[in-house]
Design a protein around this nucleic acid. Sequence first.
DNA 1: AAGACGAAAGTGGTTGA
DNA 2: TCAACAACTTTCGTCTT
Length: 311
Amino acid sequence: MVDSIASNSEYELKCRECGGTDLYHDYDRAEIICNNCGLVVDYNMIDSGPEWRAFDSEQVVKRTRTGAPLTYLIHDKGLSTTIDWRNKDSSGRDIPSKQRAQLYRMRKWQQRIRVSNAKERNLTIALTELNKIASKLDLPKNVRETAAVVYRKAVDKGLIRGRSIEGVVAACIYAACRKCLVPRTLDEIAEAAMIDRKEIGRIYRFTLRELGINLSPTTPIDYIPRFCSALGLSKDVEIKAIDILNKAMNMQLTSGRGPTGVAAAAIYIASVLIGERRTQQEISEVAGVTEVTIRNRYKEIAEKLEIEITM
DNA sequence: AAGACGAAAGTGGTTGA
DNA sequence: TCAACAACTTTCGTCTT
């Protein structure tokens, strides 16, 4: 996330996904959210300005900085009161039996109010599921938040009815990964969520259409950092691979090709050129494509870019 | 022996009538 | 709804290091 702060230097912020400038600065949560497509543009930003500087649009936002951080990952955004289950008062003494009964009733109502209607209940289940899947995939927090935002929109639009909560959650995660430019393949998500890949894809397309979200197609470059680190390759290889991809994309060598296959081929070429060779099989495993595809792609690229590969 | 290569047949998804 | 189609996969025999 550091580089995104740097590249969006000096608050000339646009959503890097849809280009929208309608950004919601949530200073309480230290996040910037695109009102157009729901992307969590940035998080953990530092509010460097003094309290009184929030004078225009931010004035509606509460200026106080106290309280627990809000999060979209808890169904009530972390705002609820929780009543302790222990029968002790604040100084640790036992609470007399008369008041215990009252406390019991309070807890009961608290529970009822906290998860009051169908939507709340749905969110509770879904967000738990979301975190479970996201943990399996080691997804960073901003991706989870983005997925949660998308899911909330889906619930508001009533898109869940007729679909499984898990399926929609998986689709939201898939979308969030792409929005945040850390794409996972449908296969990876399907495995973590234990849902059929086709179903996730179907729900994904449906959700995007219904919510009017536009995602630019993933580029092979988005996959490079993850694949390289999975292969234990150095930054040099990564840079070289991205360099190759940029040239290849300029020459229209990537259109119509699966981005993972192209990324795998670029890494293969780069690893050979830099001298940190990985076998086609090793790369094919992390990229989720076959050696044959890597071969086909890298033949094309090497030929057109006139790169000599000596074994 | 491992890795790379490439032909051939099979598969799943998109497109256009 | 169906057939055509391109991309990709699987499989397998051969070549190279």
